[in-house]
Simulated scan of single mutants.
Amino acid sequence: MSLSTLFRPISYSDLPGWSTDTVSAAFPAFRRCAFQASRRPYRTGRLGVRAEAFTEAFADARAMADAVAEETARRFFERHFVPFRIEAEQGAAGFVTGYYEPEVEASPVGDGRFTVPLYRRPDDLVDVDGQDLPCDLDPSFAFARCAGGRLVAYHDRQAIDRGALAGRGLELCWLADRVDAFFIHMQGAARLSMTDGTTRRITYAAKSGHPFTGIGGVLAELGEIPRERVTMQTIRAWLARNPHRVDEILWHNRSYIFFRETPAGEPDLGPVAAAKVQLEAGRSLAVDRMLHTFATPFFVDAPDLSVDGRPYRRLMIAQDTGSAITRPARGDVFMGTGGAAGSVAGVIRHKAAFHALLPRALMREGRGQ
């Protein structure tokens, strides 16, 4: 597999903000990937960044301490990686958004207050691919169900909200607010403060297969929120003002997420995500996993975005993915857990230049050939 022509080599001196970023903050995230990859190697993305090319960098990272000095971390990345600018498709600018881990109250049982279930993966949900996908299903479907001896589309959000899965014992927990549940679906994980005094974490397990539709775009098309003002906060505020229209809007997004419980892990870190490691706030990046290879370091330059009083120019590690994260120059920054992180994540919608740090071993192999 050849390395994609979308990668254009540059030097570290031409990487905006490289010399001023605290790159040591990203090293623990990379090191966690190094240990995970030793147990189960990551899959190579379609852009040709071979997972095997990380072997040397992973071995060195595992031999180092989790916390390293700034110059040690900088030398590590510069020794093992070469920066490449990712050319956005059709000349369009790259785009970055933010996400977080909601923290909500939940009950292990449903009652008069806790009426909204979060479901585990149903046993009749099956994985499909291009080899066994029925011709009447859209090629984007990765899940379906077997009915009458053939694969058909799984129940969508409206059908499930109306009880398609009721009575099957699939409830992981119950929430008091269906808008909270919907945004947990959007984030793909949550930290749950249970009514019995315990804390639980849940993360993505599977989805219904239906294409994702962003309700912010729906509200903009309906003229309810100006497109330039669509954020998580303005969407929540609109839903709170229009409770009689919640079903109408949420059901536009037919995709439905199923969850699994995951170990609580380190409390200062985020949930275990698609790369099977806990996320690092501000340093973990969700990318298109079909295109990119997990553990790839990315340097994101979003000069119009500021979360600490300076233009957002940071080294991050590809450790997650999402239905809305498509295209090479597209990423979603994990901002942390709880309401404060959500307030920051919800307003991140900015143009950005994406740079991938690719293993020098890949260069020695002749650019992946």
Score class of each variant (00 low, 15 high):
2 S>R: 14
11 S>V: 11
13 S>F: 14
26 A>R: 02
27 F>W: 08
28 P>V: 04
35 F>H: 15
35 F>I: 08
37 A>E: 12
46 R>A: 14
51 A>Q: 11
57 A>K: 06
61 A>V: 10
65 A>E: 11
67 A>G: 11
69 A>W: 03
78 E>N: 09
80 H>V: 06
82 V>N: 11
85 R>H: 11
87 E>V: 14
90 Q>D: 15
95 F>W: 14
96 V>H: 06
96 V>F: 07
98 G>M: 05
107 S>D: 13
109 V>H: 11
111 D>G: 11
112 G>K: 10
119 Y>Q: 07
124 D>C: 04
128 V>R: 03
133 L>V: 07
134 P>N: 00
139 P>V: 14
142 A>W: 12
144 A>T: 06
149 G>H: 07
157 R>F: 05
160 I>L: 07
161 D>M: 04
163 G>K: 02
164 A>G: 05
167 G>M: 07
169 G>K: 03
171 E>Y: 12
172 L>F: 09
172 L>E: 08
174 W>I: 06
177 D>R: 03
179 V>W: 02
182 F>Q: 00
184 I>V: 12
184 I>H: 02
187 Q>W: 07
191 R>G: 04
195 T>M: 13
195 T>E: 12
196 D>V: 13
206 A>K: 06
207 K>S: 12
211 P>S: 09
218 V>K: 03
225 I>K: 03
227 R>S: 13
234 T>A: 10
237 A>E: 15
246 V>N: 01
250 L>C: 04
253 N>E: 07
256 Y>S: 01
272 V>Y: 02
277 V>D: 00
277 V>Y: 02
290 M>V: 10
292 H>W: 13
294 F>M: 06
294 F>C: 02
298 F>M: 10
298 F>V: 01
302 A>N: 00
303 P>H: 00
307 V>D: 05
309 G>M: 07
316 M>K: 04
317 I>F: 10
328 P>V: 07
328 P>H: 10
334 F>I: 04
339 G>Q: 12
343 S>N: 15
344 V>K: 12
344 V>L: 15
345 A>K: 06
346 G>Y: 03
348 I>K: 00
350 H>N: 14
350 H>A: 15
356 A>E: 08
367 R>Q: 14
367 R>T: 11
369 Q>C: 05
